[in-house]
Write a protein that binds this DNA or RNA. Structure first.
Length: 274
DNA sequence: ACAGGAACCTGATAGC
DNA sequence: TGCTATCAGGTTCCTG
């Protein structure tokens, strides 16, 4: 499940291989991946254009192309990687050919991923709702302890639900929400508004630390995730609670439990996270 | 306005 | 062994 650290790792590995190149071919094997505009118009809009820059916002990848913006979201099982030669991947859904022979492959077993192309006027209008509504990035100056405190204070839901809300913080998903709460020693089911200032402070530090660590480890590969060169990450070797049901807590030895919170599988230490 | 849940999807896995 | 039901979770959409 690509979250911020995985998408950032993909950006870092893909960008050097595509920035400065021009798109000379687009093979759309599964048209419904292309959400906007219609696939034929999509191809016309980006064909022959030079890729100027690649950035990430939350879990979105933004390829700035001359006079257009290519937006990619990997959702659950999407992958984006570069290769040369024939594409044998049975899950390849859209393949961009570049003018140096590189192929940029969007592959997705579950086909929930989405690709958009925006024209300059739409880029200004922020026509993609989810992208336009994103909250601040962890590790950015806009994401402060005061902001997190305010975001939690006037919420009635559970703290984990707030962490998963992309309009509050951009880029956290199920893995890093659980990991952040574990490091902060806060129970995921706690009402968001019930956290005291010290807990908010710990959570703020934990989110930043977890995201920073995970980027350093080039993301978490549970099953599907691969970087832009089709390699696995290594952060799965450093997880505190996610996927560790029944295994001992690294702090206290209690067995990690798995429940459901905010409609998601949720992992926590019953002793450290009261 | 906000919270909660279903729908979208299909490969992997658990259970019979 | 082989089949079927269930699970996985990011986002959007719908309902209360």
């Amino acid at each position: 499940m690509p979250e911020l650290p995985e998408v950032e790792t993909i950006r870092r590995t893909v960008a050097p291989r595509i920035v400065g190149r021009s798109i000379c071919g687009v093979e759309v094997r599964l048209p419904r991946i292309i959400r906007q505009p219609e696939p034929e118009e999509f191809v016309r809009l980006i064909m022959g254009k030079k890729i100027v820059q690649m950035e990430r916002r939350g879990k979105y990848l933004l390829c700035h192309i001359k006079d257009a913006l290519l937006v990619i979201h990997l959702r659950m099982t999407g992958r984006l990687y570069c290769q040369t030669g024939d594409v044998n991947d049975r899950f390849a859904r859209v393949i961009f050919s570049l003018d140096d022979g590189t192929k940029l492959v969007f592959a997705d077993s579950r086909t929930l991923g989405t690709i958009y192309a925006l024209e300059p006027n739409q880029m200004a209008a922020k026509s993609l709702k989810g992208l336009a509504a994103l909250g601040p990035e962890p590790l950015s100056p806009q994401f402060t302890e005061d902001y997190l405190a305010a975001s939690l204070r006037h919420r009635r839901g559970k703290v984990k639900a707030v962490l998963l809300d992309q309009t509050v913080i951009a880029g956290l998903g199920n893995i890093y929400a659980d990991e952040s709460l574990a490091l902060a020693r806060i129970n995921p089911a706690r009402p968001a508004a019930s956290l005291c200032r010290d807990e908010v402070s710990r959570l703020f530090q934990a989110i930043n630390a977890v995201i920073r660590e995970a980027i350093q480890h080039r993301g978490t590969t549970f099953r599907d995730y691969r970087d832009g060169e089709n390699r696995k990450g290594s952060h799965q070797e450093h997880l505190r609670v996610y996927g560790r049901r029944g295994l001992p807590c690294l702090e206290c030895g209690s067995l990690i439990e798995r429940t459901e919170v905010a409609g998601r599988g949720t992992h926590f230490c019953p002793r450290c996270q009261q």
